[in-house]
């Protein structure tokens, strides 16, 4: 088989894996948009905050240590214990649920029936607040994330492909782990929304707020549930991306990778987020591989948006988005 074809196959595989990571971020946006019509600008910062909290808890870091030391003249930084990864994840989930309750009580409750743009602006404010709050709580130094995820070249795949074609493909073990986690996440979310009472209530709220309220569904409770699930998805995305780069404030920018995925897949579809992520991942990687070197490279950021726009020309609601029909 020609080398270029083998390379293209390797790039496609890696594009699929990268696409899964984009989908993980996009999922959080979809969940909140579907249930409340809010485009949550803070989703990227939620991923950052969740990852910071996880590492902080795991390492036994004293929250707000800088503030405490400045006020009381103390010198505390760590509790001196190390929390096992599983417990740290559970505790972080607790923090994200608490965060969802606070958001509902102090922001969303006061903005019921407001224009979507007002809610969007509120999430912008929330994003900046959380970024500062995360810095104050856990510090802004880079943190190594270690919850035992495999990382590096998958030797089995490399040796198998080498045996077939004389060229071993590179696939990162972390990407494989992310794919498995994403698959479990999507299946769980689908089962939850289709077969649980809360899930059905969630879908009812997504379809029609007023109708859901009239049959006794608590909008406030549903919002807390949705933001909690989005917090959980943010934690998964934060862990996967944080394992690559360490947990640092640039993690909040992963949201930029989700936008073209949402444009392509639609803002209201979980399968759309997955398929959109895969198309964007493969599309940008193949474009960079084949055309990138001819035009100076670094095409991925803008090509993802170009690809999404191209799809929008033919399907303005995205591949799986709901077609909006407004009757006058």
């Amino acid at each position: 088989m020609p080398d270029q074809l083998l390379f293209a196959m390797e790039v496609t595989l890696n594009g699929l894996m990268a696409g899964v990571l984009y989908s993980l971020v996009a999922l959080g946006f979809v969940l909140i948009f579907k249930a409340s019509g809010i485009f949550n600008y803070a989703q990227g910062v939620m991923a950052l905050f969740a990852a910071l909290t996880l590492v902080g808890i795991q390492d036994g870091q004293v929250p707000f240590a800088h503030l405490i030391n400045a006020i009381f003249g103390t010198n505390v930084h760590h509790f001196g214990w190390h929390v096992p990864a599983v417990f740290a994840i559970i505790l972080t989930l607790g923090v994200m649920v608490l965060f969802a309750i606070i958001v509902e009580r102090y922001i969303l409750k006061h903005l019921v029936n407001q224009e979507p743009i007002i809610l969007f602006m509120a999430t912008i404010g929330l994003a900046y607040f959380m970024e500062g709050f995360g810095d104050l709580m856990w510090g802004s130094d880079i943190k190594k994330l270690d919850i035992g995820l495999p990382q590096g070249l998958n030797e089995t795949l490399e040796s198998v492909t080498y045996g077939w074609w004389g060229y071993g493909f590179f696939i990162d073990n972390l990407d494989i782990a992310a794919t498995i986690v994403a698959a479990i996440l999507v299946i769980t979310l689908t089962l939850f929304s289709q077969y649980s009472k809360t899930g059905r209530a969630l879908r009812a709220v997504a379809d029609d707020h007023q109708a859901a309220l009239s049959v006794g569904i608590s909008l406030r409770f549903i919002w807390v549930i949705v933001w909690s699930i989005a917090g959980f998805v943010a934690l998964v995305a934060g862990v996967m991306w944080g394992a690559k780069s360490g947990v640092q404030f640039s993690l909040s920018l992963i949201a930029l990778k989700a936008l073209p995925v949402l444009m392509l897949g639609g803002f209201t579809s979980i399968p759309g987020a997955i398929v959109g992520g895969l198309i964007i991942g493969v599309g940008e990687k193949l474009f960079e591989f084949s055309i990138g070197p001819m035009i100076g490279g670094a095409t991925e950021n803008w090509f993802a948006y170009m690809l999404a726009l191209l799809f929008l020309v033919f399907r303005p609601q995205g591949l799986f988005g709901d077609k909006i029909i407004e009757r006058v």
């Binding site: 992963i254 990778k257 490279g297 991925e300």
Partner: peptide
């Protein structure tokens, strides 16, 4: 944050 293409 994402450099897969460059390193491939």
């Amino acid at each position: 944050q994402e450099q897969k293409s460059q390193w491939l």
